[in-house]
Design a protein around this nucleic acid. Structure first.
Lengths: 142, 142
DNA sequence: ACCCATTTTTAGCCCAGGCTACATTTGGAG
DNA sequence: CTCCAAATGTAGCCTGGGCTAAAAATGGGT
């Protein structure tokens, strides 16, 4: 047994959730790389290690996967650069993140909490929900 | 615009994100087990496999971890039962899920999307945000 | 030019969460 | 009571994402 076919509604939801999770790391990383590049020109693995609170080895291997998947480019011992695809994803992620953050503020949530929750939530909001959030934020105080 | 970016806090954020992720699976599972038990009395691994769209082997090993962590109890070839801890977590998860779902509806999001997004979001909302969501839902149409 | 601190890489380990293939148990129909 | 389908368990494999320890490269300062 074990054919995961056969399930109308619920399993599709969870397939989507798993697929989302697969790209969450990529989004978090390209967003962070973009941030660091804005702050200090170039981004190095050690910057990401500090930012994410993980070891530089973990960063290095993750960057390897992101390179394999076409999000970033590096040469040995060189800085981390975003590809066109990476930049696009970073921009989208930043945009989405910001919409969620501003929305939470508009909802009445404190800055600290909004910062934390928006990081968790940003990967899980559909276009439709995102539009609803923008609408609310504008209506509320835009 | 500016998402607050400062270093030590940032890594704490991501620690929290990872810790959250560790309990997401547990929450999804106990919530599903609770659902199945309400629907058909007892819950078997195969029910969860179908619901999550994964193989029964994956379910079996996950249930093993949940047993180890005190969320569920089983005997060989027997059904899956929630412990007291598991029931408590299931109730909380269901409650949180429902708050997020109702909130999205109140925000103007369609039912399908609200169902999907609430599953993704529910694990990432703090108490504070949850309270803000409840407030909004009540104010809006409660 | 050389040394040394910082950074990156490599090797090797762990656990979670996927899978297939195959073995075993259970329980219901005949 | 027997037999078979369905459910569960076991063995073994893969990827992702964590870690430490130790080696190699880079680059700046004196």
């Amino acid at each position: 047994m074990g054919l995961p076919v056969n399930q109308p509604e619920h399993s599709r939801l969870h397939e989507r959730i798993r697929a989302d999770h697969a790209t969450e790391v990529a989004e978090d990383y390209v967003e962070a790389i973009d941030d660091v590049q804005r702050e200090k020109g170039i981004c190095r693995a050690v910057d990401l290690a500090r930012r994410f609170g993980v070891s530089h080895v973990t960063v290095s291997r993750t960057i390897g996967r992101l390179t394999r998947d076409g999000y970033v480019e590096t040469e040995p011992y060189g800085p981390i650069r975003l590809t066109t695809k990476g930049k696009r994803v970073a921009t989208q992620a930043r945009n989405r993140h910001d919409i969620v953050y501003q929305f939470l503020l508009a909802l009445g949530v404190g800055e600290q909490t909004a910062a934390i929750d928006s990081e968790g939530i940003e990967h899980h909001v559909s276009r439709e929900t995102l539009r609803a959030m923008e609408r609310f934020t504008r209506r509320d105080q835009g």
